[in-house]
Design a protein around this nucleic acid. Structure first.
Length: 919
RNA sequence: GGGCCGUUAGCUCAGCGGCAGAGCGUCCGCCUUACACGCGGUAGGUCGGGGGUUCAAAUCCCUCACGGCCCACCA
């Protein structure tokens, strides 16, 4: 059967995907004990069930797959744990959008019906992304019973248990605080779910007339405040200045009139005011600004919420403004101020605005009653563990920002006013003052007057009656938990915590977490805290942080920019292995990737190169007698035996380079430098093996075929293993075909093979000798090319006398020169005819007899070389004349410089002689 | 305001104390029976600027400039 000339990934990928699943290759179960037999464990950053695979997933999961496959081949019990995340706000938004298309809102359906709809969505679309990961070749055990979901029963149990324990410790509390409210999503957000975006706006200076007292209030020149949010002035309850500010100090204690209203507000002194900013006077809106909230508390100011949960002005904003949207209100306030001659200045101002990380709308700081989690204690423990080196960051530079965040830990607002998520397991008595309906938009405020305490309980295990008044009319808190709450438990909830399962004992703590830096605080830091809190041990030893995949101009990919590349399209067009390889060569820990299609073309070409090299080798094997093939198969099984054979320079050289590549690829994979690994295998396989050794193998005499093709097959087979973690499909295919051709029948897959361990150390003498032969061949090729010798023409070459050891080297390998540089025969040491092309290496001068030599062209070339040689000699001799260098540098270094200096001098004198002969 | 990362060939990026590298692109020549998704050859760089440490700096330290990111109650 003829193999086609170019590699066609599609049928190959489909075939092996099926075989891997059939052979249960990715399944894992705990071995006897962790101490004896430590596993390699990764829990997947659970993709959101709304998600379709994007380049970020492709990068993140390819990295995990590479590591998983590598360590499995290294003999570890490898377990990459799959699952998905319910994705709170994000997922609810998607379904709400679908509802909107039907002209409905979630309230039209009611909670129960809406949740049914959410679950239906999860059933239908929730596994899409896992299917796509499977297509990418990910070594995930995707049997339904092995796929976790943050809202399945086991994970739900973990969430309740975690809540209960934290509640029991008094770390979870309900409080009225200023929180970030997303008007569009209709929920509170935690501080780190707010992103800061620079936006163009204006800074307005507003005059607040002084109130001098008396009937009706005589108004005089008062403070001028600076603000970026004029609409919030309707909720002002004071003006604040710095207590020592000379400009305004005299006003402290006086009052002024709040423009557009008839309210009289005090002028106070507070150190939170920066005298250098704006006018030095600040309007204070305790209900809508975190700083002002603090000022309000310190100075016992009234809080007047003028912006509601719906983003519209409340009745407190006054009859003129109530019901207006906050943006419309801003316009009107500015107009009215201008009309009232109270607007002193209006200048363009660019400043950062907090926006919702899910919908990009400006968040509104509002006072609201929410659930909070105090994490000071677990943060302290997490810091301690990290500083003891129990968590290591790759790259290390991320440790500092992570620690810094932990050191400044704030209480975490964990309640969300949405329906999709883990419902807060707390029940209220309707007769109590403490009840959920207190501040919910659109809910009736019915506050009882009894002091009953909220009670812990779930929907399935609800408290029967109020522990205070005995009422049986208990109602559960309508809110759900932040989606990141369940994510924080992921590294142990996936193994069945709080049950003490065998899995939990064997797989926890996990080996490495692979993730992007954008969720370092949202997720990574919180997992560490919850890990130390509940397991008493950090959840992972290593954190590998990768960057973002950007477009070819370095811009973030986004739907609105239209610069998104779809990994599935790339896989379809170039093959999955090509996409994986392209990503892996470009990912340096912690750094973003500028991805363009060019890079994947290169990777595709590499696939083709490997494919064709194998195709060639198969063709050769076919032609060999079956007993030779058998011997070759023996070498592939026992590569060490090759070292006992009679080997030529090139053989020893390629085996040395091979063993070097095996070692460096191993070290790089183990150190999370997949990029280095990929590059070193690429360079070796293409640059050394294909370009040189396979070409050389074509020259081997019949009696050496066993050794030479033994080496070819050993190196190829080994490289397929080295590449397998990165390019699973093509390597599997070629490895199977190769084995088949070698008569090694097996049902096994490449992933089940041991990582190559080739004991030969590269011999420096061989490497040096081979370099000299390659240099000679290249020099002759260069002359041929530069002086237009027709490619097919065999040429005569003469050499200067070489010293004995060099001559022996040359003589032993002359067949390489003859064939690879297309030279007629061995003429070393003969007297070259006049009219020769002449060229020098440090150890020999080459003469190529030509009648039609272009002397000028040759002279130009030689002169150019002499110039660069001269500068090299100068810098080398300078070093050697430097006594400090000779005495202080390591001895090997000094002798190396001496050697290079001597070589350069020799080459120089040879070139000069060549030039003289030309004249 | 604090911190982090980057600045190396035309482009994208490795290298991070001891001879400046790769891929793509350029230019020249080749369908040499594994591969034109290929082969051989070629050009192209004061390693952002300035100081310092060192026998030796793209590499370590300081500083400046530019670009990007993160954090902070930047009215």
């Amino acid at each position: 059967m003829e193999l086609p000339k170019t590699y066609d990934p599609k049928p190959v990928e489909a075939k092996w995907l099926e075989k891997w699943a059939k052979d249960k290759l990715f399944e894992s179960s705990p071995r006897s004990s962790r101490e004896k037999d430590s596993p390699f464990v990764i829990v997947i950053p659970p993709p959101n069930i709304t998600g379709a695979l994007h380049m970020g997933h492709a990068l993140n999961n390819t990295l995990q797959d590479v590591l998983t496959r590598f360590w499995k081949m290294r003999g570890c019990e490898a377990n990459w744990v799959p699952g998905t995340d319910h994705g709170g706000i994000a997922t609810q938004n998607v379904v709400e959008k679908a509802l909107k298309a039907e002209g409905k809102k979630r309230n039209d359906l009611g909670r129960e019906k809406f949740l049914e709809r959410m679950w239906r969505w999860k059933q239908e679309c929730g596994n899409t992304i896992l299917e796509q990961l499977k297509k990418m070749g990910c070594a995930l055990d995707l049997r339904p019973e092995n796929v976790r979901f943050t809202m399945d029963d086991v994970r739900g149990k973990a969430v309740t248990e975690a809540f209960k324990r934290l509640w029991g410790k008094g770390l979870i509390y309900r409080g009225e605080r200023m929180i970030n409210w997303c008007v569009r999503c209709g929920t509170a957000l935690s501080d780190i779910e707010v992103e800061h975006e620079e936006r163009d706006s204006k800074l307005w200076h507003i005059h607040y007339p002084l109130y001098v007292g008396g009937e009706g209030g005589l108004c005089g020149e008062g403070p001028v405040v600076a603000t970026t949010r004029p609409e919030s002035m309707l909720g002002d309850t004071a003006v604040a200045v710095h207590p020592e500010d000379k400009r305004w100090k005299h006003l402290i204690g006086k009052k002024c009139r709040l423009p557009l209203t008839d309210r009289i507000i005090p002028i106070i002194g507070d150190r939170a005011v920066d005298p250098k900013f704006g006018t030095g006077a600040v309007k204070v809106t305790p209900a809508h600004d975190p700083v002002d909230f603090g000022i309000g508390q310190r100075n016992d100011l009234e809080s007047r919420p003028v912006i509601g949960f719906d983003g519209k002005m409340t009745p407190l904003a006054g009859p003129e403004y109530r019901g207006l949207d906050r943006d419309a209100c801003r316009k009107k306030v500015v107009e009215d101020l201008r009309a009232g001659n109270l607007l002193r200045e209006e200048k363009p101002y660019r400043h950062s605005v907090g926006v919702c990380y899910r919908c990009n709308q400006a968040v509104e700081p509002l006072v609201s009653k929410q659930w909070f989690l105090n994490m000071e204690d677990s943060a302290r423990k997490a810091i301690e563990a990290t500083k003891q080196g129990k968590v290591r960051f790759y790259p290390q530079s991320w440790e500092k920002p992570y620690l810094n965040w932990l050191e400044n830990i704030q209480d975490w607002c964990i309640s969300r006013q949405i329906w999709w998520g883990h419902r807060i397991p707390v029940w209220y008595c309707p007769n109590s003052k403490e009840t959920f309906s207190y501040d919910r938009p659109g809910m009736k405020v019915e506050v009882g007057d009894v002091d009953c305490k909220p009670m812990f309980g779930t929907e399935l295990d609800r408290p029967k009656q109020c522990s205070g008044c005995g009422s049986a009319q208990l109602e559960q808190d309508p809110d759900v938990l932040d989606t990141w709450f369940s994510s924080a438990l992921w590294p142990f909830s996936v193994f069945g915590w709080p049950d003490k399962t065998k899995e939990l004992g064997y797989y926890y703590p996990t080996t490495v977490l692979v993730t992007g830096y954008e969720i370092l605080y949202l997720w990574v830091a919180r997992m560490v805290m919850m890990g130390v809190e509940f397991m008493g041990e950090v959840p992972f030893r290593d954190v590998y942080i990768h960057g973002i995949v950007r477009d070819r101009f370095g811009k973030k990919m986004s739907k609105s920019l239209g610069n998104v590349v779809d990994p599935l399209v790339l896989m379809e067009k170039y093959g999955t292995d090509a996409m994986r390889f392209a990503l892996m060569t470009q990912t340096v820990p912690g750094r973003d990737i500028q991805f363009s299609e060019d890079s994947i073309v290169g990777a595709r070409n590499f696939c083709n190169k490997i494919y064709n090299a194998t195709r060639y080798i198969l063709m050769i094997l076919e032609k060999l007698p079956s007993e030779v093939r058998k011997k070759i198969a023996g070498h592939v099984s026992e590569p060490q035996n090759l070292l006992k054979m009679n080997l030529d320079l090139a053989d020893r050289w390629i085996l040395g380079r091979y063993s070097q590549t095996v070692q460096s690829a191993k070290a790089s994979f183990a150190g999370y430098r997949v990029d280095e690994s990929a590059r070193s295998i690429y360079d070796f396989l293409w640059g050394d093996f294909c370009d040189w050794y396979v070409e050389i193998s074509k020259l081997s005499p019949p009696e050496k075929k066993t050794e030479v093709f033994g080496i070819v097959c050993v190196v190829l087979e080994g490289c397929l293993k080295l590449l397998h973690p990165i390019m699973p499909y093509i390597t599997e295919e070629l490895w199977q075909v190769l084995n088949d051709k070698l008569g090694k029948k097996s049902e096994d897959c490449l992933l089940q093979q041991k990582w190559p361990d080739f004991g030969l150390l590269p011999n420096t003498q061989d490497a040096e000798s081979m370099r000299m032969m390659k240099d000679l061949i290249t020099a002759i090729r260069t002359m041929r090319s530069e002086f237009g010798v027709p490619p097919g023409e065999k040429i005569e070459v003469y050499y200067d006398k070489m010293e004995n050891s060099l001559y022996n080297l040359y003589r032993d390998n002359v067949h390489l020169v003859i064939n690879l540089a297309k030279v007629k025969g061995d003429a070393a040491g003969n007297n070259p005819p006049r009219n020769s092309l002449q060229y020098s290496l440090p150890w020999v001068t080459i003469y190529i007899p030509r009648s039609e030599v272009d002397g000028d062209k040759l002279k130009t070339k030689l002169n150019k070389e002499l110039v660069s040689l001269a500068s090299e000699i100068e810098s080398l001799s300078k070093q050697l004349e430097n006594q400090d260098f000779v005495s202080r540098a390591p001895r090997e270094k000094v002798s190396e410089i001496k050697r290079r200096h001597e070589e350069a001098r020799q080459r120089q004198s040879r070139l000069q002689e060549v030039l003289r002969n030309l004249n």
